[in-house]
């Protein structure tokens, strides 16, 4: 969900993009195109015991935080990195849909004396609503099936803290060599995705019929 909001914010920030914005968008899309293993590794490094974040905490006199070695922090860290990785994509989609809003609407709002945040609230947000719905489903599916970051950063640990359903199925099958158990977990995961996919497929079809 954070990924969704972050994507929207980034898209709004990049709406009136000059040269700087163009470079920024390029950077973000490049990060998105990088192999997940690379992104996972660098975050494991940054969040490690002697990593950048803990060093910064030390310099301001705070104790270090076990980002990846504590049950609660590990899950939050994984979630944050996941949203970090999906934001560029969502920003790209939101940007496309914001660019699709006719200029006249913004001009009309300005003539009516709308302040920038009012413009945002009453013009921009309603216009991107259909997009956000679809992106919400996609982001949830993405987060649900996220595997790469967990594999690289915590391997499901510490304990069972970052075992997601798909990852649990994988562990059961290939680490504990219990294919039956692993398969049934995988089926459960697949059913969950199926439900979301149906929701998504319906919304896509409706859109196609309209156009």
């Amino acid at each position: 969900m954070l990924g969704l909001v972050g994507g929207l914010v980034a898209a709004v920030a990049l709406r009136r993009s000059g040269r700087l914005g163009g470079i920024l968008l390029g950077l973000m899309v490049f990060v998105w195109a990088l192999p997940p293993v690379v992104n996972g590794s660098v975050w494991k490094f940054l969040l490690g015991d002697a990593g950048l974040f803990n060093t910064m905490l030390h310099t301001v006199g705070l104790p270090s935080i076990p980002f990846l070695f504590d049950e609660h922090f590990a899950l939050v860290s994984i979630a944050l990195v996941n949203s970090w990785a999906i934001i560029p994509f969502n920003a790209l989609v939101f940007r496309a849909s914001i660019l699709g809003i006719p200029d006249e609407i913004f001009e009309a709002a300005q003539i009516d004396g709308a302040r920038p945040w009012q413009e945002l609230r009453y013009v921009l947000l309603p216009a991107v609503r259909p997009t956000s719905l679809v992106l919400a489903v996609l982001t949830i599916v993405y987060a649900f099936r996220s595997f790469d970051f967990i594999y690289v950063m915590t391997y499901g640990g510490p304990g069972k803290a970052t075992n997601t359903l798909p990852f649990l199925g994988y562990l059961q099958a290939f680490v504990r060599n219990d294919y039956g158990l692993g398969s049934s977990t995988a089926v459960l995961a697949a059913i969950f995705v199926l439900v979301l996919a149906i929701v998504y497929a319906r919304s896509v079809r409706r859109e196609e019929l309209e156009s």
Partner: peptide, 23 residues
């Protein structure tokens, strides 16, 4: 329409779910 819906479902499947039978 059915084929398209199936394709969407297929491409959303968790990879961990397909790795077991494929193995």
């Amino acid at each position: 329409t059915i084929a398209l819906a199936l394709l969407i479902v297929l491409q959303m499947m968790p990879q961990t779910a397909t790795v077991i039978p494929l193995f």
